[in-house]
Simulated scan of single mutants.
Amino acid sequence: VFLEKEQALADARQQLREMERAAQEAQFAEKSQRSKIEELRRNIATATQQASQVGESIEVGQQELESLESGAASDGLQDLLDRRTSQERALADARHELDQITQQLRHAEDSRMQAERSLQPQRDKITEMQLKEQAARLNQEQFAEALAATQADEAALSEKLHPDMKPSYLQGEVTRLTNAIAALGAVNLAALDELAQASERKNFLDSQNADLVAAITTLEDAIHKIDKETRDLLQDTFDRVNQHFSELFPILFGGGNAKLVMTGDEILDSGVQVMAQPPGKKNATIHLLSGGEKALTATALVFSMFRLNPAPFCLLDEVDAPLDDANTERFCRMVKRMSDHTQFLFISHNKIAMEMAHQLIGVTMQEQGVSRIVAVDMESVGAEFPELAPA
Score class of each variant (00 low, 15 high):
residue 166 K to A: 13
residue 346 F to A: 02
residue 137 R to Y: 11
residue 288 L to C: 03
residue 187 V to W: 02
residue 306 F to N: 02
residue 44 I to W: 06
residue 260 L to C: 10
residue 356 M to T: 07
residue 375 A to K: 10
residue 285 T to E: 00
residue 72 A to T: 14
residue 157 L to M: 12
residue 145 E to I: 05
residue 99 D to L: 15
residue 295 A to F: 11
residue 343 Q to T: 13
residue 108 A to E: 08
residue 307 R to Q: 07
residue 379 E to M: 03
residue 121 P to A: 03
residue 255 G to V: 11
residue 311 A to Y: 10
residue 65 L to H: 02
residue 164 D to L: 04
residue 120 Q to R: 07
residue 3 L to A: 12
residue 367 E to G: 01
residue 319 V to D: 08
residue 149 A to Y: 02
residue 261 V to L: 02
residue 287 H to W: 11
residue 143 F to S: 00
residue 336 K to L: 15
residue 72 A to P: 07
residue 280 G to T: 06
residue 78 Q to W: 04
residue 58 I to D: 07
residue 283 N to L: 14
residue 22 A to F: 06
residue 115 A to H: 10
residue 47 A to T: 12
residue 139 N to C: 09
residue 305 M to D: 00
residue 212 L to N: 03
residue 109 E to D: 13
residue 162 H to E: 08
residue 38 E to W: 14
residue 126 I to G: 11
residue 364 T to M: 08
residue 209 N to H: 03
residue 72 A to M: 13
residue 277 Q to C: 10
residue 194 E to Y: 01
residue 36 K to A: 13
residue 105 L to A: 15
residue 334 M to E: 03
residue 176 R to V: 14
residue 330 R to Y: 05
residue 142 Q to G: 08
residue 15 Q to Y: 09
residue 159 E to Y: 15
residue 376 V to Y: 11
residue 364 T to K: 09
residue 127 T to W: 08
residue 92 A to E: 15
residue 365 M to Q: 12
residue 112 R to G: 07
residue 60 V to A: 15
residue 338 M to I: 03
